[in-house]
Amino acid sequence: MTTIGLAGSGETASFVARQLARSHSVRILDTDNGSLHCDGAEQVNNATSLAKGADIIVLCSGSDEVREAMLRRPDWLEAGTADKRILIDMGQGDPDDTRSLAKQLSEVGITLVDAPLHTEDTAAVSEASAIFFGGSATVLDSVRSILEAVCPKVIPCGDAGSGHAMRLVVAAIAACNRLITYECAAMGARNGLTIADMAIVLNKSSGYNSASARVLPALAANERTANVTLGSWANDLTKASVVAMRYGAPMLIATMARSTLDAASNRLGESVTVDRLAGIWEIDSGLPAPGAG
């Protein structure tokens, strides 16, 4: 059985570890004081122990500092015994940093590939989630079963860094879908439409988007749609904005979305889910809160 060493933190890393532990031997290194949980996985205390005996290393951290520290000083990987040392970055890095890191690490015999997971709800990962793979087709062949154990949809995007770039594209549009849905639904509701009518009509019309399909029926039924956090989305959109500025892409709407998410994250807290954004539109638009009246 393949042994996977996973270093990371938070809900996404815990989800990845749990998925992997179903079919692989997994050992985990918590990089953030107790936020990484996985029943059945062996817990280790340092990176060297993680690498020792691991066939593949997965890095899944929401912290840029942790990613930087582990990727810029890869001495710990020398403890690994695998012939080909493959490091899969499932966190969200800056695509250009990933490109340059992959090049540097290849010079010391380490293959860095990026394979970030986009999901708004890990409980429904098979429905509208995907892993975006940046790396060679040969490496993808060798790690595909590992990635598919996390999420059945794996999309090859190009060389190292392309997976991270693709995830930023997807994250930015997904965030826009949701913010646009709240904004437009608030306008409709204040002008006399019911959320239930909008859920039916808009999703059969050209206003359809993935958020309207999930969020509007959930709002009408007072249900949740996501477990991704505001802080995570704000970070994604910030990285997307940085890439846009670097490459000279205006991205007017997504930049507005970035500001909105940062404001919401500051207002409600980084750890609340993106479903809580609905409350902001309700207050800002003068709508009654769900269940009121």
Partner: peptide, 20 residues
């Protein structure tokens, strides 16, 4: 409402894809 959602999503999609 439908027009606004369509146009906003259309332009957001195009501008982000342009970045990609």
């Amino acid at each position: 409402v439908n027009n606004m959602m369509n146009v906003s999503c259309r332009l957001a999609t195009l501008e982000v894809v342009a970045m990609g």
